[in-house]
Amino acid sequence: MTELDIRLTRYGSRVATELISATLADLSKRYGGDGDTTPIQPGEFDPPLGGFFVAYVDHAPAGCCGWRTFAEDETTAELKRLYVDPAFRGLGVAQQLLTAVEGAAREAGRERIWLETGTAQPEAIALYQKAGYSLIPDFGHYKGYPSVRSFGREL
């Protein structure tokens, strides 16, 4: 039986950095360039203003996801860096990470959660829609890009 464990982790930790590098490499293959140039400060993911989580499957790092407080509205969380290593896809890791992030944001008093994704990530779009996210007006770093898709939901 597969054991899944999700842990709150420092954004700048070794394991988080390795998973974030894999995330950016994946995005680079899909979109070109650096993959994602959204400005991020590691401290933005420190509780209580955010949180960063790493999922382990049978003690091996399998994926990551975080949230930070949206700068323009402290009642809104912004989801960032949802990624699952290809070796662990299809096990429900992404859904469990999403649930952990939503719960932490809700517990910290956030009322809604927003995210940016893109048309080159159809599996991400499907995950968010299945989890109850709806399209919202574009809002972030990639606002106005033709391939961006912004989603949100109430917590």
Rank of each mutant, 00 (worst) to 15 (best):
M1C: 09
M1N: 12
E3S: 13
L4S: 11
T9H: 03
T9I: 11
T9S: 12
R10Y: 00
Y11C: 01
S13K: 05
V15L: 04
T17K: 02
E18L: 14
S21C: 01
L24D: 02
Y31E: 09
Y31H: 10
D34A: 15
G35A: 09
D36I: 03
T38I: 05
T38D: 07
Q41D: 13
G43V: 12
G43C: 10
E44P: 00
F45I: 04
F45S: 05
D46Y: 02
D46P: 00
P47E: 14
P47R: 14
L49S: 15
F52V: 08
V54M: 06
Y56G: 07
H59N: 14
A60F: 06
A62Y: 08
G63L: 07
R68I: 03
A77E: 08
E78P: 02
L79K: 02
K80Q: 10
R81C: 02
L82N: 04
D85T: 11
D85V: 13
P86I: 07
F88L: 10
R89Q: 15
G90E: 09
G90S: 08
G90M: 10
L91K: 12
Q95L: 14
Q96N: 15
T99E: 15
A100F: 00
E102R: 11
G103R: 14
A108V: 09
R110F: 00
E111M: 12
R112L: 03
I113S: 10
W114R: 13
L115A: 02
T119K: 09
T119D: 12
E123P: 01
E123L: 11
Q129E: 15
Q129R: 15
D138N: 06
H141V: 02
Y142W: 05
K143Q: 12
Y145W: 11
Y145T: 13
Y145F: 12
P146T: 05
P146G: 03
P146A: 06
S147K: 11
L155G: 07
